[in-house]
Amino acid sequence: MDAKLEQLEATLNNINVINAGKKREEAVALLAQLLPEVEFFQAETQRLQDTIAHERRNASFQREINADLRNELKAERNHSFDQSIKLSELERRCKRAERLLSKIPQEELDKLLPKQKGLER
């Protein structure tokens, strides 16, 4: 296509009063050859622009999804951390209660809790 464009330009630049009819016919013939190529080029360019726009929209959508997933992961990690802290606190309280309970003689426990036989320390 570039070669044909250069040929057309040269033909147009070489038109003078003496060869105007012949050069005009050459220019029209060259234009007739170039027109389908130019139309194809325009259609292909538009297709590529549409593809690029579509891919940009997809990339933007993916960035939004990624941001949402990162936020969800952060929230889950925070929740997990909070649950770990609560669990640690409950374990600490349970161990403290077990230590206190182990200091009470079994006879006293039996008096306080006569219905529950086999209480384990």
Rank of each mutant, 00 (worst) to 15 (best):
D50W: 01
E26N: 05
N19W: 03
I85S: 07
Q106K: 13
I15W: 00
L90E: 14
I65Q: 01
E6M: 10
N58V: 00
L69P: 03
V38A: 03
R121C: 09
R24A: 11
E39S: 09
R57H: 04
L30E: 01
Q49W: 02
R96N: 14
K111V: 15
A43D: 11
D2G: 07
G118L: 06
L119Y: 06
E108D: 15
E108L: 05
A20R: 10
E6Y: 09
C94D: 14
E76K: 14
N58I: 01
E72N: 01
E25F: 04
T11S: 04
K74F: 06
G21W: 03
T45E: 09
G21E: 15
S84L: 12
Q62L: 04
E107P: 09
A10T: 14
Q106R: 11
N19A: 10
I104A: 05
A32N: 13
E55H: 07
E26W: 01
V38P: 03
I15G: 00
D68C: 00
E44K: 13
L113P: 10
S80P: 07
K115S: 14
N13F: 06
V17T: 14
D2S: 12
K111D: 13
T11D: 02
K103P: 10
N78Y: 08
K115Q: 11
E39F: 05
I85L: 09
K115Y: 08
V28Y: 01
E55D: 12
L48R: 11
R57C: 05
S102F: 05
M1N: 04
E37V: 10
I85V: 15
Q116P: 07
D82E: 13
S60R: 01
R92A: 12
N14Y: 10
E55G: 02
M1I: 09
Q62F: 00
Q33W: 01
K103F: 14
E55P: 02
Q46A: 14
R121Q: 06
N14V: 11
R99P: 08
A32T: 15
I85P: 11
A53R: 02
D68K: 00
I104V: 15
I85A: 05
A97Y: 05
R99Q: 13
C94R: 12
R57W: 04
K23C: 09
N16L: 00
E107F: 05
A97G: 09
K117C: 09
P114K: 02
E64F: 00
K111F: 12
L73D: 07
L113V: 09
D50T: 11
E9L: 03
N66E: 03
L30P: 04
I52S: 03
V38Y: 07
N19S: 13
E37L: 11
A75S: 08
T45Y: 04
E25S: 11
E120W: 03
R57L: 01
A29M: 06
T11V: 08
A20T: 14
L12K: 03
K74I: 05
K23P: 10
L48G: 06
P114N: 08
L73F: 07
E120N: 13
K117I: 15
G118H: 07
K111M: 13
S84T: 12
L35N: 14
E72K: 00
L113A: 10
S60E: 07
I104R: 01
E91A: 10
K4C: 05
L109S: 00
E64G: 01
Q49C: 08
N13M: 10
E55N: 11
E98G: 06
L35G: 13
A43E: 12
E89C: 08
